[in-house]
Nucleic acid binder design. Structure first.
Lengths: 208, 208
DNA sequence: CCTTGTGAATCGTTTCACAGCC
DNA sequence: GGCTGTGAAACGATTCACAAGG
């Protein structure tokens, strides 16, 4: 299949969220315009996004809410649960471990790792924090596909290398440093300080 | 000034980070190629990004590390500290309150608000959690410019409306719902479940 | 008549390539 | 010789506009 832009995938996730809300309200069909208004985009954008994957609608009618939902779940790979490990049980790691939004979407936390003896042994939302030395053997036996990396910047790259060597498929990085991975591993970064800097820029240039 | 793309601003932040590291290592000048390699971009991209704001380099030589740093800080609006409030003292709000990266960059947490009587009164990194009812009066007197919104999706929009009415300039939203604000307010969202879904998509389509 | 699906047009961003300067 | 600064070219994403189908 043709390469799909990240912005498109992001919007597909948003459409799915809205479809689920719509479904809960008992609606059966939805038009591209209705889907668009929620995500702050246009009906043409919605139709174009969907057209990359097929034709799911009925002309004159719109889309079946349940059909489109399940089709989007399939496209996004949410049909099956994903096994996720968290590396770093500090403030951010602990918050992630207890975040409900992951479980709801089929992302199951199967392991949490840290080096601090004070953290090791603690139970976070039913998962016990284990010694980082156990990470590789656990990863191999659990076959976890995704890692959430919530460690200080200085150790982020070496830990990434260990995760990659242990066969991880994707990493979500919360450290404020860019990471290097081989091309078969997918990496994304959430950098909160950087988001604030973008807001800072916007504030300073409000009327420029 | 011409409108600057968000991707450009994001890269400027990354350049600044790297410049600071470079400065700490005692280097005086840096070329666009060196700056690029860190951020995973190209030398032409670096030069183009900077060219929107002026000519800071010397041909044949590169850029003065300290000059370019301070120029970038100025462009990004980091020359002065920003007053930030956190709305929601749950797991994520508390983690944000204690995150060092904000303070280092001049983002000062001046208030934290919640509705839970159990949280109110707690001190998080030196700031006491206050009743959400005090939010508006505090915002007016403190003149905080930025809010971090870490509350459940259901209350995110009403709280946004209150922040906007109280004169907030920018909001960083951690709730998993898109928010509506008037155009003079800047809003950005960090949606962790959505980031995981993008990884999920990548994993499923690795070899497609 | 209403709404989808899609080629064509537009718009914006990145990359190229080279003149200008140290 | 080396590196910047920048128009021009290439590329990619969004928007338009309309034919096709319920």
């Amino acid at each position: 299949m043709k390469h799909i832009a990240e912005s498109t995938v992001r919007r597909l996730s948003l459409y799915l969220r809205f479809l689920e809300e719509f479904e809960a309200h008992g609606h059966q069909t939805i038009s591209s315009g209705e889907l668009a208004s929620q995500g702050g985009t246009t009906s043409a954008q919605v139709r174009k996004d969907l057209s990359f994957f097929g034709s799911f609608g009925k002309r004159g009618l719109g889309y079946s809410v349940s059909d489109l939902s399940s089709r989007l779940r399939e496209i996004l790979g949410l049909g099956r649960p994903w096994k996720v490990v968290i590396v770093g049980a500090g403030k951010i790691g602990a918050a992630l471990a207890q975040y409900r939004g992951f479980r709801e979407r089929g992302f199951r936390i199967v392991g949490i790792y840290d080096v601090d003896p004070q953290s090791i042994g603690l139970a976070l939302d039913g998962v016990t924090v284990r010694d980082q030395r156990d990470m590789e053997t656990d990863l191999m036996s659990l076959n976890a596909e995704i890692a959430l990396l919530a460690v200080p910047a200085e150790v982020a790259q070496p830990l990434t290398d260990r995760l990659v060597a242990a066969g991880i498929g994707a990493i979500l990085n919360f450290a404020s440093t860019p990471l290097h991975v081989p091309s078969h591993v997918t990496i994304r970064s959430v950098n909160m300080a950087l988001e604030l800097e973008i807001l800072s820029y916007a504030l300073v240039n409000r009327d420029a």
